[in-house]
Every structure is written in structure tokens, then in C-alpha cells.
Design a protein around this nucleic acid. Sequence first.
RNA 1: GGUCCGUUCGUCUAGGGGUUAGGACGUAUCCCUUUCACGGAUAAAACACGGGUUCGAUUCCCGUACGGACUACCA
Length: 512
Amino acid sequence: MNREVRVRFAPSPTGALHIGGVRTALYNYLFAKKNGGKFLLRIEDTDQTRFVPGAEKYIKDALEWLNISPDESPWNPGDCGPYRQSERKAMYMDYALDLLEKGHAYYAFDTPEELEAMRERLTAARVVSPQYNSITRTQMKNSLTLPADEVAARLASGEPYVIRVKIPRKEEVRLQDKVRGWVMVHSSTLDDKVLMKSDGMPTYHLANIVDDHLMNITHVIRGEEWLPSAPLHVLLYRYFGWEDTMPEFAHLPLLLKPDGNGKLSKRDAEKHGFPLFPLSWQDPVSGQIADGFKEGGYLPDAFLNFLAFLGWNPGDHRELFTLDELVEAFSIERIGKSGTKFDINKAKWYNEQYLRRKSDAELAAYLTEGMEAEGLQIPMEKAEKIAAIMKERATFPADLWKEGQFMVIAPESFDQEIAAKRWNEDSVKVLSVFKDILEELEGELLAPQAKELLNQAAETAEVKLGKIMQAVRLAITGIGAGPDLMEVFEILGKQELIKRITFALNTLEIKG
RNA sequence: GGUCCGUUCGUCUAGGGGUUAGGACGUAUCCCUUUCACGGAUAAAACACGGGUUCGAUUCCCGUACGGACUACCA
């Protein structure tokens, strides 16, 4: 039986989508597309207390920014809706009842206090892992220990209850993970997880099995934090009688912090000054703003490429992949097993690579964006020229303006250190002659000609050009480093050059 | 604590019973460049440890150490 590949990304709307979640979404997307299947998104909002307004919109926007939008989702439903678990609420109880009838689940009436007391009792008795299981359930208030009529009475009276799965005492549970191979767990280490909560909502464990089955999910690709509960999920598929269509599992390695060890956290992001979220996010409660890669100047393609390589590689030495190329190259078999430390340097490198591959016109648009913020405007032709000579030195689009603005705004002051070291009588001589030459010049000044004329000026002044180049740069740009000066001359034009040289000659003083 | 998962240069990783253990980022040096950057070249840099199995283990097995995840009426 060859089923159409269907995978899902199933975030819960509890805040901004973490970069690890984005990678999970990406791998799901890549796998679906590679296999000609469908990528769906399901909102796992069964915990009403953790709902955060705006979180779902954030998820949608983030995936859109990266161009990996799902084929089916709450805002673009397919045939398996609804795509929010809260809207599927009504269906879960039937499935829980089905398990109950089959003897694989039971009602439990224990209060939170009683559960806490049980855990304390077990801890005091030095039980290694205090949990609700095949042993302890015999001492708790549930439909396994209470008489049938009392259970019926409690249910009829509206007393709060949960439905728990009845985990067998001794059973080996095996599952094949596509990343890790066979994983074996003994049922005695599992506990009787709650399936239906007292508020009538299912827990994740029930909901994800029911929904994955109903949505014909063929592969579950999710974070490694789910591996410990995967055996429970296998058991549930078995109890429902869905084993033959049970999805295959692939548990992704975790994203770790850049220094030391441990899971990547918000604190690390702040400490190292890099974003943790695709888009910036303002927490609706605290009002705190978390940085986003988008706002930080990361290009979506570059970010995606970087993310894809955090835990996966194509097996050859290629590094730069478009989204289509990633789809083509992707396979679950090439996902690594071990946790991955997050290195922002590599992300920056990817950004540079992608930035340099952009056309001058695209880059010019970034440049003018920065200028508009300061109320400045220049002809597109000039913007393209500036972008062209600036792109080799930019990491982010904003650098184009930040580091290239001297070509639009004349310097009002000069780098003191360079001035002290390089500004001398020779540079004054050459620049004075050069200025005179420019004033005589007719027509446009082009880069090769500029070089010729400057050489001429140096000869006239009897100065070696190499000795004063730095000073010339300083006079024109105010700083000691930048793109090819002759290109800068051409962009600035004759009049502007004369103006700047005059200003420099009048302002800079010869030291020592 | 228990269960599960993991461990190749600083980082991301390739590889796999016999290799000079390969690449990329970062770092250093050199070249190019009348600056800086880009680009090019070179260098330093790794199989966690201990036992097996084997003619031979970084590779297979078992331990140990270390790290991580999970251990809720959260997902």
C-alpha cells in the first residue's frame, strides 16, 4: 500500500515560534515536498490556560516569511479539518470512551492534592519514580478500584474526573525511529498518562494520535523531547487498532546553546546578542520584545539554508542551497543523531553569501530603505552603483547604508587617528593640485580617468602616490577604509569632490 | 534518582575495520589590492576514556565518564 506522504507541524500557540520549532517545520516541509506529499499545520491548543493571543498569527507569518507555508492549515483548510484542536474538542471523548470500553483506559477521580500526597508518600518510601502506574493505581480513586455503582454515581453527579490510559505492567514496547533506529522501552517505566483532562479537553498524547490518524499522517517528524513519550503513542495506536497505518517516527536532535551545554534558551540569545525567533515578538503580557532574525537583517533564504544544516547535511561538500535544492537533496536518513550547538557566525556567513548573489537593483532598494529613514533621496542609478561596490563588505542589508553613507553625506569630521598619522604637507600638496586639475576638467569624471589625474597630481607635486593614498581617502570620506577610491570618485562626481577636498584642506591640520 | 537518547577539529559536519581522518564557519599567516573588504593559498585544530572482538579499531560490542531530553489534568 503506497500512501501519499502527509506530515504535520503541530505547534502550540503559547508564544513566538522558537528557532528549533522553525527547523522542525522546515524538515517537515522538505520531507513532504521531496516525496510529493503534503505539509500540514495543526494548532495544538488543548491547554486553554496557556493560550497566547497573536501566537497563531505569528506562526503563520513566520512560515510565510520563509516561504514554507503549509498545504493545509487553519487558514487554508484541506479535507481533514478543523486544524485547531480546540475546534475538534467534541470528537476526542468518543475515542477515549472507545479505549475505556476496550479496557485500555479508566476513569480517575483523584484530586490534585491526592495526587500530590501520593507522590510524597512514594518519595518518602524511596520509590525511584513516583508515578500513577500499574502498582499505584490500585490505591487511588478510579474506576478500577471503586465499585461500579459508585463510579456511575460520581460521573452522574458531575464530579470532575480524568480518563487515564491503562499501561500494562510488563510489556516491551518497541518502536523504529528513522533517525535513531530501534528504541525499546519497558512498559513498567511508563505511567498511566491522562488522556482526557477534567476540563473535557484531551491531552497532547490522546489528541495527537487521534488527529494524526484522522489526518492520514504518514510520518511524524518532531523534536527529540518527544522520544520518551513515543512508546506511549505506539501503545495508543495499538489499542485503537490503528497499528497498520501508524506513522513512522523521526525524532530530531535538539538545538543546544553555543557555549557549554544545554538546550538553547532565550538567555543565551540575549547573552550573545543574536535572535532566537524568526520574527520579532512582543509578549502580550510582559510587553517584552524578543528580537527576530528578519528584523536583524537575515535574508529568509540564507536563514533557511543555515537552519537546514543544523542537524542535516547533503553528504557532499555543497553548502549553498536554494529551497528547491534543499527539497531535492533532503532525506531523513541524513539527519544526525546528536545535539547541535548554535553558531551565529555561520548564520552571518550564509547571509553574506546570499547578499552578494543579489542584483544591484535589489541591493539598491535596501540602501534607499536606510536612507529614507533619514529623509534622504538619491537617483536609483547612483544607489545601484553604491550598492555594487559596497556589497562585498556587507553582512546585512542595513550595512549597505551604514557603511556606504559617506558616498551620500559629505564628512563633517575626520578619523582622528588616521589624520594624525597620515595627514601631512605632501597630502596637502597633492590634493591642492588635484583640486586644480578637477576644476579645469570638462565633462564627467570616470574611475580610470580619476586615477590618471590623481597620478598626474602626485607627479606634479613630486610625491609618491602610495604615500598619501590613505590621506586622500580620509579627506574624501572621513574614514580610513572603504571600497576602491576611484570608484568612489566616480560616484561622487567632480563638483562634490572639489567641495570635499576644499573642506578637508580647510579643516584638517598637520600634526607633529 | 529513574527511563531514554547522544559523544569526530573551538563550532557545523563527512567518513567508516587498514585513510596523510575530508569539507565548511571561525582563527592565524601569505598572495592579490596604492586602504579595508572580497577572492586565492597555506597553517594550527578532532575520533571522550577503559576493556573486549580482530592480524588490525576512530569505525563493531560492553562498560565508564560526560552531556542532553523526559519524568504534569504542558505541549
